[in-house]
């Protein structure tokens, strides 16, 4: 009985914070998304009206939302597989028996993860500068033409994808490395005795054993990449020609630039629903391919 009371005093502060400043706002956001909360309501709440699903319907009829969605899907669709491929590649290299100075390489490859997005985005903006950037210097030295990375609507998103991969691959690399190290060595030995080549061992031993970790990593990465915001905010301000306006960037502009907080909440819920749907799809795909 006494323990029970103490237990509640232990959990109460944390639960109060999470309840008041996360759970409650989430519920409030759902209600807010059903109102026309805007600049006038911000000044005087008597201007607030219940509008039902209006915000959702209006959002779905806004071309800019679909543009932002297409940009976000482009970023997720190309960025996540690329990011996972780089993570897997570096994790395999670090796991190799032939690798030397593993501790150093692991730390160095991980370093971008702990850096501040805003600061490193500033670096990349300069690296990819059309006139003075190192990247274009390298390209022109190799005989290619210079590319207007951040100024050309066709190249802006690929540049941001490259940036995101560089910034984030180390994180998944560490998780995949832990997964690789958990695979029993006897499995490789047995495959070797059966005459399996390195490629066959990778395909038939490593990847199947790593599948649960890969699924976990895929889900975390997809959820994270859907929340693209700081990169376009610093590097391109959503441009050029809105080519890097993400759903979250659109939500930020609606909510905190134009103060349409009701509309912004609806956009947030649409994004949440999308993340849930894609995650559920990934899980179902994983279950299906395991059954097959």
């Amino acid at each position: 009985m006494k323990v029970e009371r103490v237990a509640w005093t232990f959990v109460a502060p944390a639960l109060a914070v999470i309840g008041l400043f996360f759970v409650l706002p989430v519920i409030a956001a759902l209600l807010l998304s059903l109102t026309d909360f805007d600049l006038y309501a911000l000044a005087d709440t008597s201007n607030l009206r219940f509008t039902g699903l209006r915000n959702y319907i209006d959002t779905l009829h806004t071309p800019l939302f679909w543009e932002a969605l297409a940009n976000t899907l482009y970023f997720v669709g190309v960025g996540v597989p690329l990011s996972m491929l780089v993570s897997l590649g570096t994790a395999l290299l670090l796991d190799s028996k032939l690798a030397r100075f593993k501790g150093f390489f692991r730390t160095a490859l991980f370093a971008p993860v702990v850096t501040t997005v805003v600061a490193v985005a500033v670096i990349w903006r300069y690296l990819f500068n059309t006139q003075y950037g190192l990247v274009n210097y390298a390209l022109t030295s190799l005989g290619f033409g210079a590319i207007d990375w951040l100024g050309d609507a066709n190249w802006s998103m690929p540049t941001i994808i490259l940036f995101a991969v560089w910034k984030n691959f180390g994180y998944n690399m560490i998780i995949l490395l832990a997964g690789l190290q958990a695979i029993p060595g006897e499995l490789y030995e047995a495959a070797r005795i059966d005459g399996a080549s390195a490629w066959q061992r990778l395909r038939h031993v490593t990847l199947p054993m790593l599948a649960p970790t890969l699924l976990l990593v895929a889900i975390i990465t997809v959820a994270g990449y859907f929340q693209l915001f700081a990169e376009p905010y610093v590097m391109t301000r959503g441009g050029p020609l809105r080519s890097t306006t993400s759903v979250l960037y659109y939500m930020y502009e609606e909510g905190f630039r134009w103060w349409n907080l009701g509309r912004a909440s609806a956009i947030a819920f649409l994004l949440f629903a999308l993340i849930l749907a894609v995650t559920a799809g990934l899980l179902r795909f994983a279950r299906g391919s395991r059954a097959a």
Binding site: I18, F21, F22, V23, L24, P25, V26, A28, A29, L32, A223, F226, Q227, L248, M251, G255, F256, L261, A264, S265, A268, F269, L271, F272, I275, L276, T279
Partner: peptide
């Protein structure tokens, strides 16, 4: 609650 993106809470949190 871990699956809910933080940004969903941001508008009401700002008003709070």
């Amino acid at each position: 609650a871990l699956v809910i993106p933080l940004q969903v809470a941001m508008m009401p949190l700002f008003l709070m």
